[in-house]
């Protein structure tokens, strides 16, 4: 079995709205772009918050903190993809 085992079933659809955002993003971008990854991160966070996924550092899930700054801003609104794009790239350059 995978490292963190199975996702428990989300019987009440608590995180379904984040999933839908993510799927929308995937459909539009067709690639696993940064903004979609942010939504993925948000989904996992949602799962952790509702107790449907073991709490863990996002680093161990492949999110290396460069998205953290934009994650809060993005979590409030669906749009602003461009911003996040630019900001993440900024962050990366700054990080280096």
């Amino acid at each position: 079995p995978p490292e963190r085992g199975s996702f428990p079933l989300d019987h009440f659809g608590e995180c379904t709205h984040v999933m839908k955002q993510y799927l929308e993003c995937i459909k539009v971008k067709r690639e696993n772009q940064e903004e979609c990854r942010l939504l993925a991160k948000k989904y996992l966070q949602c799962r952790m918050d509702t107790g449907l996924f073991g709490k863990d550092d996002m680093k161990n899930l492949g999110f290396h903190g460069d998205e953290n700054a934009t994650s809060t801003s993005l979590s409030s609104s669906n749009d602003g993809n461009n911003n996040s794009n630019s900001s993440s790239s900024d962050n990366k350059t700054g990080g280096e």
Partner: peptide, 24 residues
């Protein structure tokens, strides 16, 4: 490599239930 998924464990679905199953 899978970090987490819905595999290998029994999943119980109620009658006419519909759930999302993520794979990471």
């Amino acid at each position: 490599s899978k970090v987490a998924c819905f595999c290998f464990e029994e999943q119980k679905l109620d009658a006419h239930e519909k759930v999302d199953l993520p794979v990471f």
